[in-house]
């Protein structure tokens, strides 16, 4: 297809002038500035898999100084071949997000607010409560006298966004504690 500039030529002689200006090496400062500062130049590339739906698209995280500075589709990934939807394309903002909570919190009975607590305190307190609830609620045998060794006083839901290795470990913990009320996203 032949490219014509007829629409413009009809109006004015601006076209010719424009060309001349370009050829004279007119100062293209914004362009050269942009070109020189590709913000991912020299960044470390780490591959990841999109955390949203289960298509499993590949994403590359560009990072500098330990901070993720850009995320975009992994062009080598055979499923998405570099493409991403709105959510996948926004991964950067999940990682770099001021609204993320970054410290364990505790809300006491009847309290109207959270307070920040240490990991050590939070996990130790949870551990105590788990043991207490388990020991008090443990069912060794059912009404027929069969050994059942289960904990019905604690329930668990969740994990569909965890890694496989975390999921396995999590279920191992919950089952070792005797939980039977173990459910997650697949049920809803």
């Amino acid at each position: 297809m032949k490219v014509t500039r007829r629409d413009f030529i009809k109006i004015s002689g601006a076209t010719a002038t424009g060309l001349v200006v370009s050829q004279l090496g007119f100062d293209l400062s914004p362009v050269s500035a942009y070109a020189a500062t590709l913000r991912i130049k020299g960044a470390k590339e780490t591959t990841t898999i999109c955390p949203y739906c289960a298509v499993g698209c590949g994403i590359i995280c560009h990072s500098k100084g330990g901070k993720v500075i850009n995320t975009e589709g992994d062009p080598d990934h055979p499923i998405n071949q570099g493409a991403l939807c709105a959510k996948g394309a926004a991964l950067y903002q999940w990682v770099n997000n001021d609204s993320r909570l970054t410290t364990p919190l505790y809300r006491a009975p009847g309290s109207t607010s959270w307070k920040s607590v240490s990991w050590n305190w939070a996990l130790a307190e949870i551990a105590k409560r788990v043991k207490d609830a388990r020991d008090k609620g443990f069912i060794k045998t059912n009404t027929k006298g069969q050994v059942v060794n289960r904990t019905e006083s604690i329930a668990h839901v969740g994990s569909a966004a965890l890694d496989n290795e975390e999921c396995w470990t999590l279920q191992a913990m919950m089952r070792a504690l005797g939980l039977v009320y173990i459910e997650h996203q697949a049920r809803i």
Binding site: V31, Y34, A35, T37, L38, R39, K41, E72, G73, P75, N80, G82, A83, L84, C85, G88, A89
Partner: peptide, 21 residues
């Protein structure tokens, strides 16, 4: 729109094109 001139000048396609499935 800048045509992602920074990307294009460095041999990459614009971000919108890259991401389109």
């Amino acid at each position: 729109c800048t045509m992602c001139i920074d990307r294009v000048s460095n041999g990459l396609v614009p971000a919108c094109v890259k991401t389109c499935p």
